[in-house]
């Protein structure tokens, strides 16, 4: 953990993720059945699907929060058997610790020089000057910014996002999209974004995978130049239509 903090601002690149013949079942319920997915280093992948389709399970497997019933999950060629410091997860809820101030939340793992690093990362997500606030006074968007800063502070090589913008209003969500895109472009970590918002997937990702009943129903590349500010781009609209048909 401590070694990571040394090169926070730098572009550390990403790690590849590989799932081969992964099976995950909870009791009799089969969530993923012989699932294969290769995510190259640095890619921004969006996973779209209905709720209960196994999206969150997929993410929790990569994060090391769940163990696969069968098959292999590996990160950068090494099998995942626990939560790794190079992998950070953003939850649906911000999950800030209410009794710690914003800066303490960001530097949750402490580590050497954590205050300085946390301060810089908070400025990076646009929360300069809010270091000493309590989480309860922040808005929903600000809380997710703090959560994002907390994820970024240890310079992760993989960032997993479990519908973190789902509860935000439309304008805040667009702000968060731009913020995430800017940071991802700067740092180049591998990103897996789970969402049920098809427009969000097309606006952010290099590649969209549609998950249906534990299997991949569609796997397409989003070959649009960045930054994607044109909402009514006919190519984007066409991609959204194709994804919606597959969901």
């Amino acid at each position: 953990m401590s070694a990571v903090a040394a090169e926070v601002a730098g572009n550390d690149g990403g790690l590849s993720i590989s799932l081969s013949r992964v099976v995950k079942s909870f009791g009799k319920l089969n969530v993923l059945g012989s699932f294969n997915l290769e995510i190259p280093a640095g890619q921004f992948l969006a996973v779209v699907g209905r709720s209960g389709g196994g999206k969150s399970t997929l993410l929790r497997l990569i994060a090391g929060l769940e163990t696969a019933t069968g098959g292999r999950v590996s990160i950068g060629g090494r099998d995942v058997d626990r939560t790794l410091p190079s992998v950070r997860l953003l939850f649906q809820e911000a999950r800030l610790v209410p009794w710690q101030r914003v800066i303490e939340n960001v530097g949750i793992a402490r580590g050497p020089n954590w205050q300085e690093t946390a301060r810089r990362t908070l400025a990076d997500v646009g929360l300069e000057g809010r270091e000493d606030d309590w989480p309860s006074v922040l808005s929903g968007g600000q809380r997710q910014r703090v959560a994002l800063a907390r994820a970024l502070v240890s310079a992760p090589q993989i960032l997993l996002l479990d519908e973190p913008f789902g509860a935000l209003d439309a304008l805040t969500r667009i702000e968060m999209h731009r913020l995430l895109e800017r940071i991802w472009t700067g740092r180049g970590f591998t990103t897996v974004l789970i969402t049920h918002d098809v427009a969000e997937a097309v606006a952010l990702a290099d590649r969209v995978v549609v998950l249906r009943e534990g299997a991949i129903a569609l796997d397409i590349d989003v070959d649009l130049e960045r930054p994607r500010r044109e909402l009514a781009d006919p190519r984007a609209v066409d991609l959204q239509r194709r994804i919606l048909e597959a969901v």
């Binding site: 939850f91 999950r95 240890s154």
Partner: peptide
Amino acid sequence: QIVEMASVYGLDRKALIRR
């Protein structure tokens, strides 16, 4: 959920109890 978050973010048992 906060306890899970803390373990994902690498808090050891001592830090988890104390903080």
